[in-house]
Design a binder for these strands. Structure first.
Lengths: 190, 190
DNA sequence: AATTACATGTAAGAGGTTACATGATTCA
DNA sequence: TGAATCATGTAACCTCTTACATGTAATT
């Protein structure tokens, strides 16, 4: 069973938008797909080469004024077919997300310092709240500057996932702290 | 900035429970930590060797009746100190979980077949519901066979995270389908 | 003069998956 | 006899991160 190369499809998908250079792809993912995807230049540039080799994209070098030159990549018909095929393939499994905080929590009975555990969760909640604020800002900017483009609907749906997931994690964090503080080993579990 | 080796701490943490062999560690993670961690034998066995080399654990070979022999590993004082130190270190960043469904959704305006997108989400929801059912079963079994051990509280907290995260994802899925079915940004095509 | 943004790339290595290889014991 | 469970391990491979390397142009 071969491992699926999702990076390939992520880049191919972005090439269908107006982002065409490695630099722009990186920016796009960091800015708009950051709640469910990430990528590094160490993946992007070699993959762009591979796409050209496989004839899924072609490259056009562009001389820019006031900026360094850049290489722009465009998806081919073959590339579109490959992307389309992937889009039509159902997700085979819901992936397990590793969570370092939960791993620590799982072994927390080994450590006597309950306060420290609570502090970890509190800091986690803070980070989640920052993330949530970013999502709300993005959502606002889509609504405000919205073009009514069809993409928009799907972008808002993915953003909604981020919001809900983050919100649920915050609520869990607060409940977890309450449980630990309430300190009922044998007692009431809500 | 070196990458943290979480696998090391996961195994070290499990060695503080009554799971002592590579095989048992694998089972423990697959059964009890499966909602936030996963591991393969290709990681476990080499890491157990490394732990012994680093004097964080020692090994005792055990001849078993009616079963193949096994190697049991025990955490050393040095190992406990390393684990404790990690437990006390705050989480530096909330990791981004890659989500293949969201990636597809983000590019879904490229594909005309709206029904197929809905089907993907529906299948995703089904898998989440199966997962949720497993969590509820585990929770019941902890409550029923519960020993009142301190571990139990923390196990339930991690399980609660899994439940909430899964529930939130299911609710998102239903909302997303409703949006796609009802909400046309540009009015219905096809 | 220094920093930031724009821009492209590579090499080493960490981390993880998968397939393979081996073998004992139990149960249907 | 065959499958399942128990048990340990390795090698090849893939994916991704990080550090490094280079350079232009604009801004402070």
């Amino acid at each position: 069973m071969a491992q699926e190369n999702h990076t390939k499809y992520a880049i191919l998908g972005i090439l269908t938008t107006s982002c065409n250079s490695g630099y722009e792809i990186k920016q796009m993912i960091d800015n708009s797909l950051n709640h469910f995807w990430k990528i590094s230049y160490g993946q992007i540039y070699p993959m762009l080469k591979t796409l050209v080799t496989d004839e899924l994209a072609y490259v056009v070098e562009v001389a820019q004024e006031n900026k360094p030159d850049k290489k722009t990549y465009f998806i081919t018909e073959k590339g579109r077919a490959v992307l389309q095929n992937w889009l039509e393939t159902p997700i085979e499994k819901v992936s397990i997300e590793k969570n370092e905080l939960l791993l620590k929590l799982f072994f927390s009975s080994n450590q006597k310092k309950e306060q420290l555990t609570i502090k970890h969760i509190e800091q986690y909640i803070e980070k989640l709240q920052e993330r949530l604020a970013v999502f709300l800002t993005i959502e606002q900017s889509i609504h405000t500057h919205g073009t009514g483009h069809l993409d928009e609907q799907y972008w808002l749906i993915t953003l909604d996932y981020g919001k809900r997931a983050t919100q649920a994690a915050i609520e869990w964090g607060n409940a977890a702290i309450a449980t630990i503080k309430g300190g009922n080993v044998n007692g009431e579990k809500d």
